[in-house]
Design a protein around this nucleic acid. Structure first.
Length: 202
DNA sequence: CTGACGATTCACT
DNA sequence: GTGAATCGTCAGC
């Protein structure tokens, strides 16, 4: 297992980074309790020129400030008053790129994740969808937005998993109809056929 | 200070 | 397929 370093996050092409995140492993280790899962679905948010981004048009608020900061940091925010959505900040300071982690395939600490989500047994809904990912990994916007991904309790690693290119799929992003023509950009990437990918089951 | 709303999920018809 | 849940954030007064 090799932890991804600042060189991975700091690069300018957020779409490239998003694709490369597929197959990597997201780990949280709060109070020594480890939970992890392989990333199987992501969405890229391409800075000020992307109408679907919170930073569209250079919008800068207290909430999205962390996207304008350094890369390799978590941007977590509350949606619908209920769901915590976990994003990875990329690129240089003042360039608000981010990648939303939409789904994982559970690896470690499945019993802990079941406990956190009040579920009884493992099924494909445990870490499917961005709200469920944060819930299962114990990530909350209050405590973890701005948290470094180069830290010991929150990070992304790669193992020997290799994603076959024919299993890489792209589609428009989900839930961003308000973004006009940018809503149809193919900025969502996922591993084809993986049961934890959100959207229509197949 | 106030009101409208969201990068969603789940229970229910 | 439809609708409720639920609260921090933001724009506007």
């Amino acid at each position: 297992m090799r932890k991804l370093g600042i060189d991975f996050y700091q690069r300018p092409n957020v779409l490239q980074i998003a694709k490369e995140l597929l197959g990597k492993v997201l780990v949280t280790k709060w109070d020594g309790i480890e939970t992890s899962g392989r990333i199987v679905e992501v969405e890229a948010y391409n800075g000020v020129n992307d109408k679907a981004s919170h930073a569209a048009g250079g919008r800068r608020t207290n909430r999205n400030e962390v996207m304008y900061g350094k890369s390799g940091v978590a941007y977590v925010y509350l949606c619908y008053g209920i769901h915590h959505l976990f994003n990875v900040v990329t690129n240089e300071r003042e360039t608000p790129h981010a990648i939303l982690i939409r789904a994982l395939e559970p690896i470690k600490g499945i019993d802990i994740m079941l406990q956190r989500t009040n579920k009884k047994q493992l099924d494909h809904t445990l870490t499917r969808g961005p709200g469920n990912v944060s819930k299962a990994l114990g990530i909350s916007f209050k405590h973890h937005t701005g948290h470094s991904l180069l830290s010991k309790d929150l990070f992304i690693t790669e193992d020997d998993f290799v994603l076959n290119k024919k299993n890489l799929a792209a589609s428009p992003r989900i839930g961003v109809d308000y973004a006009g023509e940018d809503a149809s950009l193919p900025y969502r990437f996922y591993i084809k056929g993986n049961p934890f990918v959100s959207g229509k089951p197949k």
